[in-house]
Nucleic acid binder design. Structure first.
Lengths: 229, 229
DNA sequence: AATTCATTGTGATATTTATCACGTGGCATT
DNA sequence: AATGCCACGTGATAAATATCACAATGAATT
């Protein structure tokens, strides 16, 4: 596992918040920050561990999970690059409420928490950006809670496909980053029901699916399913 | 609707965050803040309206709601006094994502948003407390999302009763602040199923229930239902 | 007290979704 | 090529929950 001291000034993958830092603040960040490459499948943080530093996902894809009843995995979010991980646990508690696992090879930065807090105290705009992203995360959870409670399964499955297409891959063609079991854990259903849903979409020509290669053929119908299904 | 200019220095119902404000900051807050008494049933904020000021619930009880599929009401939280309302919408978007309705007579303070932001810029500890409460709210949503997805209905109903008893009323005897329809909207089920659940708990001597007067008789069994049900 | 209207309780039935069971196919390892 | 291991597909069945229907009760208003 290679480590390197960062030059955050020239980083091409700055967070929305760190873009507002001044040069000397970026240097301070860089001096208290390590970039770590990880391979697909590795765990970044374990649910239940003490919070110790801020983790920034530079690039790649991560699943945010929690264990529920009978240790059953619940996937809350699929997170792409330029995102801080586990902020709610960090500022709202002393232990991590979630685990994070790499869905692709990726790089994370570990930032010393004292440094991070110092930057927050020094730079109100930075803090404001962080707060704003926390609030967006919060709105997203509420939105998901609403959907989970009121939509039927095929609607939630359609949502997941649209989410991958529009938010993650920005294309109508993509490779599913999750197994069907994981998709089930993401939308709150069983593997079998997920498989049936995908078969159904395939039969009705809403999508094509070979192995985990998806192409969305009829996005309007898929949105219709998301709405009414 | 009576309005009064506030003296926040002597306010007995300060938020956790405003407790760290200095005297002159409290005065500034008071000069840009109006306390408004509201009656049970009144709406404080409407989903979809533009965010305009910070709202602080001094005392009383509120339901936080959103309309979902077919305008069906989803109740996300029951909120008691000393809580800021709608912060996620305020800092994460430009419109309110939720409605807030008074479940009791209560008082709210409207705080001018510029003043609030100014205090955040001036006082890092204040900002930190606000952030921390946002993070706790966030963790709470995730927790609810997990429960909603993985627990069966009677378990969620037991959770709701325990929540009222432990978090809201701090007593094993209390008056339900919601109708059965609202409890259903809170735990994500139908009115009938809620009624059946309550009957079931009554029959099994976990609770007594007359009109909306509840007494929890067997809290351990209720927690058992919460866990396994 | 009579009236009205919202709320609650409960049986019967329908629908949705989970679970069980088992077969298939791809892919890595030997 | 044989082996084992996952992930996937799908039928049959069971379980959980929603929906429909209607009676009963309670609270508010006249």
């Amino acid at each position: 596992m290679v480590q390197q001291i960062n030059n955050c000034r020239i980083c091409k993958e700055k967070s929305c918040a760190s873009k507002v830092l001044r040069m000397e603040q970026l240097d301070e960040l860089g001096n208290n920050c390590r970039t770590i490459p990880l391979e697909k499948g590795e765990t970044i943080l374990h649910e239940g561990s003490f919070t110790s530093h801020v983790i920034y996902l530079r690039n790649g894809l991560i699943k945010e999970t929690m264990r529920g009843v009978d240790k059953k995995e619940q996937i809350f979010r699929i997170i792409k690059g330029k995102t801080y991980l586990g902020m709610s646990s960090l500022f709202g508690d002393t232990v991590n409420h979630f685990s994070y696992k790499a869905l692709t090879d990726l790089e994370v930065c570990h930032i010393e928490i004292g440094t991070f807090k110092k930057l927050m105290l020094e730079n109100a705009e930075f803090t404001y950006k962080i707060m704003s992203s926390l609030c967006k995360e919060n709105l997203h959870s509420y939105d998901k809670l609403l959907k989970q409670g009121q939509k039927k399964i095929f609607g939630r499955l359609a949502d997941a496909l649209l989410f991958f297409s529009e938010d993650i891959f920005e294309s109508t063609k993509f490779t599913l980053p999750l197994t069907q079991q994981e998709i089930a854990n993401f939308i709150g259903t069983s593997r079998e029901t997920t498989a049936r849903g995908l078969s159904n979409f395939k039969q009705n020509k809403l999508i094509t699916l070979n192995n985990s290669e998806v192409e969305i053929l009829d996005i309007n119908s898929l949105k219709q399913v998301s709405k009414n299904g």
